[in-house]
Design a protein around this nucleic acid. Structure first.
Lengths: 333, 333
DNA sequence: GTCTCACATTACATCGATGTAATGACACCT
DNA sequence: AGGTGTCATTACATCGATGTAATGTGAGAC
């Protein structure tokens, strides 16, 4: 049987509360008894029961991290950083996958109220849909990414500006027929909309007419779907001068397709991505991308979360993350 | 304030225990009172407090998954599958990263005893080191991968046989100078040792003399280190006919180096990996690899874990996972 | 020697859900 | 009507840690 405070107390010849005092260090304890208790703890190999502690003081020390799909490199890198930073700050992280399923996002919010969780970091897929009713009954929530959500705290990269700058960078050597891969018909993710708008803004700056046929839609942002979409596109359209993929994952799928067609990159077509995932550096050729500090995303998310735990006001807190355009081999240079 | 069983009971005009009975469905409850209680639950928007429940019945419904580094595609895919399968079975998953730090593996075992965790799935880095004292005081543990550990349950792919078969496959078109990337000097991971031995077994079958200079060491199995190791190697050695990298990640790093050198793959050199990560399919050229069903890994790991929870005997349970050699463009064909 | 004050320690209640054992209600049979 | 059996429901105790308020102990001042 597991040892409890009671057992430790008995062995040390003190009361359970004194043991608790030693462990928490808030109430002062005399040196002598502290040593006795610490020895008893070692002897009995005692570890506190977190369920009991959680029940008593209403906090579990656990935060939840919800991502669409852990297997994608982007989510994996975010998860890695958040788990790491959280651990440094003494938190434990529970992982949840939402798939593309708003239902899962909802389930999540319910579980978040079961008190095994002190806070939630959520990377929503379906922005408004999931709604994330940030009501009073909910624990602190921080959203990741571009979401049109006016209530919850949020960590994000300015997708509009980044897409604009990337488009301008691709256009620099005189390229004008720049295609984008990843737009979504009608209502899509907020990120898709903003990146498309940033691209269009760049065209305006460049004085280039918007050419509808250069917008290659792709609902899901995976290499598979990107490869399919691009293959289908190239079958009926001339080759653009540059291809701006809305994620690195899609860019990797695109590179594979272009390579199989025997095209030279960037000579025949320049390619760029978004996210700066580790694999992009080792892509063939290495991938030009929008880079940002993922550890900063993690740090900021946890900062917002802890702030929100301390002060549950109603004003929304925002944490924009800087980005840079990283030009690698896939766009020349 | 959050509603509790008491509040629900008062509103439904029954006792707290009856509410509990309705929720758990073990003790029979009359239709009439069940409806009353269910209505009250809806009215008050009641969710049970899992800390309290966990305290009371000693189980939390949470399992921990410990991986070396979530950001690597392999770990990410494993995590994805385990989270998915666990969710289907009603578990919640807590993620832990061990880095390459045995200390973290130890901390983990301690936390595993704090009862917020009903079981632990661990992918150890430093095999014996971490030791994972599978004692009586610990919750059920399942290890992932090749580990020389005689006590804990384990899910694994036969690295020896897979490496042997892959080497034979690379040798088929008459290639004889087959190099391996990822051996570790002296004591390394069990996987490294077994894959090296499988390779040597293949050479024996082929009647090819073992050539020490074809064993390219690489301690860490990342694209970065692989790229460095290969670059250094090629500076002072002739080009082998084939390169068997011990993970897909390393292979991707290797492809990048070879491509920058202007080498044609597989014409100048064939390349293969191990793990069949999603990116390998979109590598340029697509990567020949040892493939296995990662969902099966997850399913088996959870099966072993649940079995172990039910029956805490002393015999070790093993779950070998089938593998196949998948030949893609990087090895010709 | 006694009284105070400060401070360490203790007994007890509490967090919320649920198992145990006891109580209550109702129907059915003689 | 009285007795018996079945089944739903209840009161109470419990899981382990910790806050609260009360108790105990000692030193120091007069």
């Amino acid at each position: 049987m597991r040892a409890t405070v009671k057992d430790v107390a008995r062995r040390a010849g003190v009361s359970p509360k004194t043991v608790s005092n030693v462990m928490n260090g808030i109430v002062p304890v005399s040196e002598a008894t502290r040593l006795k208790v610490e020895q008893a703890i070692l002897d009995l190999d005692y570890v506190p029961n977190l369920s009991a502690r959680g029940l008593r003081n209403g906090r579990s020390g656990v935060i939840a991290l919800a991502l669409p799909d852990l297997a994608t490199p982007y989510s994996a890198e975010i998860a890695h950083n958040i788990v790491e930073v959280a651990h440094e700050q003494g938190w434990v992280v529970q992982i949840e996958e939402t798939g593309s399923d708003p239902q899962r996002e909802h389930e999540l919010m319910v579980r978040a109220r079961t008190n095994l969780i002190d806070g939630l970091i959520l990377n929503p897929v379906v922005l408004d849909e999931s709604a994330v009713q940030v009501g009073v009954a909910l624990p602190p929530v921080v959203l990741l990414g571009e979401v049109t959500q006016k209530l919850a705290d949020r960590v994000f990269v300015d997708s509009f500006a980044a897409a604009r700058d990337m488009t301008l960078a691709l256009a620099k050597p005189g390229r004008r027929r720049i295609a984008i891969l990843g737009t979504t018909q009608g209502r899509g993710s907020a990120a898709a909309i903003q990146r498309t708008q940033g691209y269009e803004e760049a065209l305006r700056i460049l004085g280039v007419d918007r050419d509808e046929s250069l917008l290659i839609p792709c609902e899901k942002w995976t290499p598979e779907t990107a490869a399919e979409a691009l293959t289908a596109y190239l079958a009926s359209h001339p080759l653009p001068e540059a291809l701006f993929c809305f994620t690195d994952s899609m860019a990797i799928g695109a590179l594979s397709v272009l390579w199989k067609k025997g095209l030279r990159i960037p000579a025949d077509i320049a390619v760029a991505g978004f996210d700066d995932i580790a694999d992009g550096r080792y892509a063939v050729p290495s991938l030009t991308t929008v880079s940002f500090d993922k550890r900063a995303v993690a740090t900021e998310a946890l900062r917002l979360l802890t702030e929100r735990m301390a002060d549950r006001g109603h004003e929304q807190r925002l944490a924009p993350i800087d980005y840079t355009i990283v030009e690698r081999d896939s766009s020349g240079g």
